[in-house]
């Protein structure tokens, strides 16, 4: 495959996202502009300008009408995707580390950092989606502060039915909250238990593309973990040899893609050939490392998989986005057991 290199950002990428149909890619980096790209040819639709600080996160609603950006300049901005106009700005108490739309587009989740003497929180804002969208409610409708017995939230995501909020914490635990009341339901220590690593901060949460009944979390403890949403049990553990910044589940095939590499400050002391800057493909069920994709010359910060499973996009510390489209070897690969199973299934029908 030949990836498309997108070089619109001046600093390291923080998040990339596809919209529901997968025709647009949304990217944010540590420079203060977000970019929107056509995924088919890498043409840039436009840039979103107006923030004054690092952009940590971007999300697009399911109809690609709005996108929201969370920034370190203490604000969340709502933009219309069609013309790139900022229609509303929410003020946040501390830098915003993550934004995410609810599945019905009525709510916007944001994770604010635990700095400047403030407690880290998950804030839920109501989004006036269909009406006069430049007139939004400035106050959050729900605030979930860090629990006293827990550490600060680093990432959070709505479940696919919008009932729960899943949050990843700095100390490696994953917890579940009720999305309407903010009530704490349960948590699981997902990271920091598989090895001796000291930094275990959760770096990414992505839902399973099919039904969202499980999700994957990545962490600085060099692992990614698959967790069931309802029972909140750890299903699978994928072990790597470097801190992981991102993890994604692929539709179509039973793979997960992990991205990471060592800390940015150690990058210059490492040879590119050591393979720390590659996207890692693991088999979702067998937990085995089955392949790697080279290309970036810095750690991968973010990975997003095309909703139809035809490719993926990665954003690196090197400031580049690479849009990959899988070729046939990807879809044709099966384990021997999978092949036999398919043969048996084909024989009986």
């Amino acid at each position: 495959m030949r990836p498309i290199k997108l070089m619109g950002h001046e600093r390291s990428l923080t998040q990339v996202k596809y919209n529901r149909e997968g025709d647009l890619i949304f990217s944010v980096a540590k420079d203060s502009t977000a970019s929107i790209w056509y995924s088919s040819n890498g043409e840039r639709l436009g840039t979103l300008e107006g923030h004054k600080g690092t952009l940590w996160s971007i999300d697009v609603d399911s109809e690609t009408k709005f996108c929201a950006t969370g920034s370190a300049d203490l604000s969340i901005k709502l933009w219309t995707v069609e013309n790139g106009i900022c229609v509303y700005t929410w003020a946040a108490p501390t830098p915003v580390r993550r934004v995410s739309f609810s599945p019905d587009n009525k709510k916007l989740l944001s994770v604010t950092d635990q700095v400047m003497g403030q407690l880290g929180t998950i804030l839920i804002y109501a989004v006036n989606y269909d009406g006069d969208y430049s007139n939004q409610k400035a106050e959050p409708i729900l605030t979930i502060p860090t629990r006293p017995d827990s550490s600060k939230v680093t990432v959070a995501e709505f479940s696919q039915d919008g009932k729960y909020i899943i949050a990843g914490h700095e100390k490696g635990e994953i917890s579940k909250y009720d999305a309407s009341t903010g009530e704490y339901i349960q948590s699981v220590q997902a990271h920091g238990i598989h090895n001796e690593e000291q930094t275990v901060s959760v770096t990414d949460i992505q839902l399973a593309p099919e039904d969202g009944s499980y999700f994957i979390t990545s962490s600085k403890d060099k692992c990614a973990v698959l967790i069931d949403l309802e029972s909140f049990e750890i299903l699978k553990v994928y072990k790597a040899d470097a801190p992981m910044n991102t993890a994604a589940i692929t539709p179509l095939k039973d793979y997960v893609i992990l991205g990471g590499g060592q800390e940015a400050r150690n990058v210059t002391t490492t040879s590119e050939n050591q393979g720390k800057f590659e996207a890692r493909f693991y088999h979702k069920i067998f937990e085995e490392d089955i392949g790697r994709v080279k290309g970036h010359f810095g750690p991968l910060n973010t990975i997003a998989v095309h909703p139809d499973g035809s490719g993926y996009t990665s954003g690196g510390e090197d400031g580049f986005i690479r849009v990959h489209t899988f070729d046939n070897s990807y879809t044709e690969f099966y384990y021997d057991v999978e092949r036999t199973e398919r043969a048996i299934a084909a024989g009986t029908t």
Partner: peptide, 29 residues
């Protein structure tokens, strides 16, 4: 197109978009 891409001709701009070198993804244990 809008933002930094306003008034640019249709199609990908080579300053921001380039085709990378060929990569082979060999899946297998």
């Amino acid at each position: 197109k809008y933002g930094k891409e306003r008034n640019t001709p249709p199609g990908p701009d080579t300053r921001t978009t380039q085709l990378g070198e060929k990569i082979e993804l060999k899946l297998g244990t």
